[in-house]
Design a protein around this nucleic acid. Structure first.
Length: 849
RNA sequence: GCCGGGGUGGCGGAAUUGGUAGACGCGCUGGACUCAAAAUCCAGUGUCCCUAGGACGUGUGGGUUCGAGUCCCACCUCCGGCACCA
């Protein structure tokens, strides 16, 4: 063993061993308990970033720990490799998406290998490879046959200059990012998946996900947004015979307060009016320049257009005006709302702006004078409903409307069906053909995969699959006549909705191999780890597809991810010159609070997410090249709890590096017993220092074992640091002490192995063990040794700390009270004791007065 | 706008889930080693009044309790998501 800690030699050595011996290869083995730990697979951008390193380090600690606990651990890695960036790169740099993606994957795989993650690389998959997307096409056809896939019209962001559909991300301030043209909301025929058919189950099963963060379940619950309300239709005057306006409301109690109706700009009535009325047309067009993002629509200034149509109140028969409103969403409910400005904030704002009547129908104490009141109360101004609580009025109004035959009680969901069509090349082709005589026809499964053509160009705007000279021209799988392929590809969320099943049998010719899936997925993926930013969309889509695959017979369990850990982001200050240019952390000189660039003071901005646009990135590979990956891993785990944001700090990285140096220096031949498998029992120890160190060792094992189960890696490392501090201060005088010292060093090495796998493996070998730590079980706590003999008893007077007493650990409450009263006597100053509260083995609070 | 989360010393964070606030690390100060520096090691370090000791202290303001960082109410502020970024 070399005198100084040399991470580069050690890391290369052990990574070589793991590679050569295929240490982390796993096979289905029903005789062993399985543990499936999964990190969200990356988009292969070409560079490993800190977020990846953090995510995969967390997973690796869990994988190595569970392995030491005797589980058959599945820990795979792959690539979410379809998507827009490859096409953007193709346009900008004239590269082919496939080769660009392949070289990115190669670079990132290399980075992951240098990070020493315990992956079974034999299971690596990439969603852009035809074996993967071919299986996905088969799944898609299955879903179609189950009635879960259909086409309908829906809105997209249309760039009228580039003649292409834009992602929300590509719409900047309402304009196309390349063309700068004002983006239009346009209706197109799109493919959808019927996720709403599973809405109830997706909602209900959230309650089984006890090992998910509460906040993620809440967000999903709110996203699904189940509500109970009333659907009914207003009769409409002025729009033609028999025209009605169906609405949905969750507040039927306020129906007597309706003073107008608002409809979405895409509502059929709005479209009808726009055809005859130029002003209405102009207003609808203005609304359509707002893009499709909900955030933009809801944040925009509320605007409306008063139509000549009049809705007839179903109970009073009174006329109320109908407005087209820019904030009403066509996708929710019926695209029309009954407006009650007295009791809805948006309706209130709108009514004020357009000077519409406001009719209060609920009364309560403390009502705001100048805003809508949305709380509970008693009905007023509501005729037959007066005097009811508004909750009772909900039922009464529903009953009344049902009796009138104008509507009914309805359940509604905020969740919409999932639009999966993309008019892009680099995605999984939708395996359908449009035949002039047969209509839409699914490809025959034996013709799968429908492969992407390689010879495509990106010089023309629009979808390259559509432009391709021959690709879309084919024959109908049903009648054999000339037909055209569907040129839409699938949303990449589809790719990431079932990859965890494919990992179980990545080479299978079928979608999945059921034996493998049912072994590894029994009870779900045991631990899933990824960023909170995926809390809703990815996780909801994956849950949906998983349930569909269950119903298709591909898998047995109901939920894909038994437990979820959501990690925080990695943050760094950003630095700006006086001209506003962003500087890389590696470009600036930091000296205390002074940050300079070429001698000039630099503006230091607050901590924010590491991103290319702010240049505030630290490359994992730079860090690894400087300190080795063990230091990088230790820093990441120690600096912040996993679920919180991690603030980058060069000083703290130094600290992690120094700790590993100190740990290394514990390997002192003069202090270590040469007897490899020998420990001294607690009852043979006579010196206090020896008993104390033995206790410290076993309390540390206990603490680390508990922390690792709770994923509290920062405190787990702090505990080992404490033990290591105690060991270096421990006086080794004889053979007993040498044995204890060895026991302590070995505990540190074994407990830290999941976090710092290379260095601890090297130390373990140097300690004389022939089997590596990858084949060694997790240390056991000696409960007898770990037990405290004395504790600190806190004595409080009126809740304020007065004394600390050292007492036997097993002190009885009576004795504790007695000792506390003795100790408090000098503090009494004439006051008398009123009450004594004893918290066993912790404190005594004496109430005086 | 809507949904969700966070805020504790100079800094990152800890706190047995209502019971000693500040573990561990960073930084800083002093010391040792050195011709010197780096590295390493040792000691100190919440703030204020300061002698023992005391007062204050977990974003702000209220409340519950013998006791609140932890529970309740209101607010401030920062962050994530919002359906075509992944």
């Amino acid at each position: 063993m070399t005198a100084r800690y040399n991470p580069f030699e050690i890391e290369e050595k052990w990574q070589g061993v793991w590679d050569a011996e295929n240490t982390f290869k796993t096979v289905t083995d029903t005789s062993k308990p399985k543990y499936y730990v999964l990190e969200m697979f990356p988009y292969p951008s070409g560079k490993l970033h800190m977020g990846h390193l953090r995510n995969y380090t967390l997973g690796d600690v869990i994988a190595r720990y569970k392995r030491a606990k005797g589980f058959n651990v599945l820990h795979p890695m792959g690539w979410d490799s379809f998507g827009m960036p490859a096409e953007n790169a193709a346009m900008q740099h004239n590269t082919h998406p496939a080769s660009w993606t392949d070289s990115n994957i190669a670079a990132m795989r290399d980075g992951l290998k240098k990070a020493g993650f315990a992956y079974d690389w034999d299971r690596e998959l990439a969603t852009c490879k035809k074996d993967y997307y071919g299986a996905q096409q088969a799944l898609f056809i299955d879903m179609y046959n189950k009635g879960l896939v259909y086409q309908k019209e829906s809105l997209v962001n249309w760039d009228p200059v580039d003649n292409t559909v834009l992602a929300n991300e590509q719409v900047v301030d309402g304009k196309g990012w390349r063309s700068g043209a004002v983006v239009e909301r346009r209706s197109m025929t799109q493919w959808f998946m019927a996720i709403t058919k599973y809405a109830d189950e997706l909602l209900g099963d959230l309650s089984q996900l006890n090992d998910w963060p509460e906040r993620v379940r809440l967000m999903q619950e709110n996203w699904i947004g189940k509500s109970e309300g009333l659907s009914f239709a207003f009769d409409v005057k002025g729009a033609g015979d028999g025209v009605t306006l169906p609405v949905y409301t969750t507040r039927p109690d306020t129906i007597m307060g309706v003073t107008y109706c608002s409809i979405a700009p895409e509502h059929p009535l709005a479209a009808q009016l726009a055809e005859q009325n130029a002003e209405a047309k102009a207003f609808v067009e203005e609304c359509q320049s707002m893009g499709t993002s909900q955030e933009a629509i809801e944040k925009a200034e509320k605007k409306g257009f008063k139509t000549p149509y009049v809705a007839v109140h179903p109970i009073t028969g009174e006329d109320v005006p109908v407005y087209i409103a820019n904030f009403v969403l066509m996708g929710y409910g019926t695209g029309a709302v009954m407006a009650v400005p007295a009791h809805d904030e948006r309706d209130y704002e709108f009514a004020k702006k357009y000077d519409i009547a406001i009719q209060q129908v609920i009364h309560a104490e403390d009502m705001p004078a100048d805003n809508a009141y949305t709380g509970e109360g008693v009905m007023i101004n509501s005729g037959e409903f007066d005097g009811l609580t508004n909750e009772a009025a909900k039922k009464a109004v529903i009953a009344r409307i049902e009796k009138l035959g104008k509507g009914e009680k309805t359940e509604n969901y905020r969740l919409r069906d999932w639009g999966i069509s993309r008019q892009r090349y680099w995605g999984c082709p939708i395996p359908f053909v449009e035949c002039p005589s047969c209509g839409l026809v699914a490809e025959k499964k034996e013709n799968l995969p429908i492969e992407l053509p390689e010879d495509v160009t990106f010089d023309k705007p629009g979808n390259p699959l559509d432009h391709h000279a021959t690709w879309k021209h084919t024959s109908c799988p049903s009648c054999g006549e000339k037909a055209q392929r569907v040129t839409d590809t699938m949303d990449t969320f589809m790719d990431s909705s079932w990859y965890f099943l494919r990992y179980c049998s990545p080479q299978s010719n079928d979608v999945v191999n059921k034996d493998d899936v049912n072994y590894w997925l029994s009870g779900g993926v045991d631990q899933y780890i990824g960023g909170v930013e995926h809390a809703i969309l990815h996780l909801l889509y994956a849950r949906f597809i998983h349930k569909v695959m269950r119903d298709l017979g591909y898998v047995n369990c109901d939920e894909p991810f038994k437990a979820l850990l959501t990690q925080g982001m990695v943050l760094h200050n950003s630095y700006q010159t006086s001209e506003g240019r962003y500087l890389y952390p590696s470009e600036v000189d930091v000296d205390g609070d002074q940050v300079t660039f070429n001698g000039e003071a630099v503006q230091v901005n607050r901590m924010e997410k590491m991103s290319k646009s702010k240049n505030n990135v630290v490359e994992p590979m730079t860090l690894i090249d400087k300190y080795g990956v063990d230091t990088a891993r230790l820093f990441i785990l120690f600096q912040a709890p996993a679920e919180r944001d991690l603030e980058w700090s060069d000083n703290a990285v130094e600290g992690a590096w120094r700790f590993l140096g100190r740990l290394w220096n514990l390997m002192d031949a003069d202090k270590l017993s040469t007897k490899v498998d020998h420990t001294v029992a607690t009852n043979l120890l006579t010196e206090k220092a020896d008993v104390d160190i033995k206790r410290a060792i076993h309390q540390c094992i206990d603490k680390v074992s508990k922390d690792v189960e709770k994923f509290q890696f920062n405190t787990m490392i702090a505990a080992v640091m404490e033990l290591s501090n105690k060991l270096s201060a421990y006086k080794v005088t004889g053979e007993t002490q040498k044995s204890l010292y060895r026991e302590g060093v070995e505990a540190c090495v074994r407990l830290l192995n999941p976090a710092v796998p290379h260095m601890t493996e090297e130390m373990w070998q140097a300690l004389g063990h022939s089997a590596p730590l990858t084949a060694t079980s997790w240390p056991e706590v000696d409960q007898k040794a770990a037990k405290d003999s004395e504790i600190t008893l806190v004595v409080q007077m009126n809740g304020k700390l007065k004394e600390r007493l050292t007492v036997p650990a097993d002190i009885a409450n009576d004795d504790a009270e007695k000792r506390a009263l003795e100790a408090i006597a000098p503090h009494l100053g004439g006051l008398s004791v009123r009450k004594c509260i004893v918290v066993p083995k912790r404190l005594v609070n004496i109430v005086v007065g």
